[in-house]
Amino acid sequence: MSIHLLTGAGSGIGAVVAQRLLDRGDEVWLLARDAARAAELRGRYAGARTLVGDLADPAKLSWALGHQALPERLDSLLHIAGVVELGRIADTPVKVWNDTLAVNLVAPAELTRLLLPQLRLSRGTVVFVNSGAGLRADADWGSYAASKFGLRALADALRGEELEHGVRVTTVYPGRTATPMQQKVHQQEGQEYDPARWIAPESVATAVLTAVDLPRDAALTELTVRPGR
């Protein structure tokens, strides 16, 4: 049985990935921001285990995980959670920069650092669900794109550093995907939201699990997923 830990199981891509892993009989650990959220996730995903740690406060992740029983090994660590606030650079306050970078970049770096022993033991796979904004920064997307450009750098550096330990690192770059985050983006853009125009979260979940399930003689380093219509 494979063992996985993922963030972002509350909705969208993360919800689909979590359920698919459970449906096939794998052991699934879900990171929740607090105890109430952890209980909610356990109620939703039968058989899932939870850990409590707030991605918005990455400096406390070490303390939080240090007071909980962790999986002994990990076959995959899946970074799927993320936040977005659109706005022009001239109008973006420091709090938005700090909050965005904390959840989208610093917390994945810290969580990966803390769980590397378990990943090395299993020669596991780390998947960073990035964004098209991690490849191109458009107007009004400055803070989000900066966090995702940084996430790409994190993945590239980690891949080189962990090669000797057999840990594979994959970055997935989805285009616009029909998730609650995308609905929020449309509201911020003042645009009507039609989920049928965008990638289904199930399609991105398939890309994520393809990277996880690839035979050990190969690694998928980067996957770009774009709307097909």
Rank of each mutant, 00 (worst) to 15 (best):
L51D: 09
V52H: 11
G53A: 10
D54P: 09
D57Y: 12
K60M: 09
L61I: 04
A64T: 05
L65C: 03
G66M: 09
G66E: 12
H67G: 00
H67E: 06
A69Y: 03
A69P: 10
P71F: 13
E72S: 12
R73M: 01
D75Y: 09
L77S: 01
L77F: 08
A81Y: 14
A81M: 06
G82R: 13
V83L: 03
E85K: 14
G87V: 12
A90Q: 12
D91S: 10
P93S: 05
P93C: 08
P93M: 08
V94D: 09
K95A: 13
V96W: 08
D99K: 15
D99G: 04
L101F: 15
A102T: 11
L105Y: 10
V106H: 02
A107R: 08
L111I: 10
R113W: 13
L115A: 05
L115M: 06
P117T: 11
Q118R: 15
S122G: 11
S122W: 11
R123S: 13
R123L: 00
T125P: 07
T125H: 15
T125I: 00
V126S: 00
V127I: 14
F128I: 01
N130G: 15
G132E: 13
A133V: 02
G134W: 06
G134Q: 03
G134F: 06
L135T: 01
L135S: 11
R136Q: 15
R136K: 14
R136L: 11
A137T: 15
D138V: 07
D138F: 14
G142F: 07
G142H: 14
S143G: 07
A145Y: 02
A146M: 13
A146Q: 06
K148N: 09
F149P: 10
L151G: 01
L151N: 06
R152I: 06
R152Y: 05
A153Y: 14
